[in-house]
Design a binder for these strands. Structure first.
Lengths: 121, 121
DNA sequence: CCTCCATGCCTCATGGTTTCAGGTATCAGA
DNA sequence: TCTGATACCTGAAACCATGAGGCATGGAGG
């Protein structure tokens, strides 16, 4: 009970974005992706299998990815590949991300002029 | 029914981060914050009142913010201010954000070396 | 005067996402 | 034999933002 939430560190949409981007570079299977995300982000991010596998299934059923089963040394792998449609989705997601990142950076670094009562002069 | 979700554009934690940062610059009330977020992000982001008000309440009950009621021309405003504790939270949230932003940027721009089967030489 | 819109506060159901904790099975090494 | 890595999977819980609603005041235009 009370399921401790030790990592209140939500980043909605980020797993999907990273997945698409990494799979665009080369086809991969789920277990591999979990580790590749850690590696390619320089240990900055980590997503559990419970996040990745369902996501892969969803993206496949949406037609964003295609899956191909492989037998490698008695173990099964499901290798995913980005479809054309998926590349479109990736482009959109990346654009959306950059937009958000710009917005947040702007505010954090006090970017946009803070004038307020100047209006009338 | 079926509540259309027109904007599948999630950014968990971002509203809280922006709120704290903006309130650090000057005290503000809820309705004002909703608009200020739009303005200060250069129209890149917008969060509804249904997001902002509950967040303010939560942050206040946590001791991150303090609230003060004001009467202005027959209308009531609840002005919020960041506490010392709140500034700590802001610092953490900002650091966490930057970490994530770095990670994503790294992957999007193909930052970390993609060597893979080189290992053995 | 009446109506509309902006201001200003609020709540709630819904739906989407991530986490955590499990479960299965194979294989290599100690 | 037992452990740990590989490799797949699921389901309950927690959390967050959306969107739609509701209430009340004040000012502007018809």
């Amino acid at each position: 009970m009370a399921k401790r939430r030790t990592n209140p560190d939500y980043l909605n949409g980020v797993p999907e974005l990273l997945l698409l981007r990494l799979l665009e570079q080369r086809p991969m299977y789920g277990y591999e992706l979990v580790q590749e995300i850690v590696r390619s982000t320089g240990e900055r991010l980590e997503f559990g299998e419970g996040c990745i596998y369902p996501l892969l299934h969803r993206l496949e059923s949406e037609g964003t990815l295609t899956a191909k089963r492989q037998q490698v040394g008695g173990r099964e792998r499901v290798v995913y590949r980005v479809t054309r449609k998926g590349k479109g989705k990736l482009a959109e997601a990346a654009a959306r991300w950059m937009r958000v990142a710009e917005a947040v950076t702007l505010v954090l670094h006090g970017g946009h002029n803070e004038q307020r009562q100047t209006a009338i002069a």
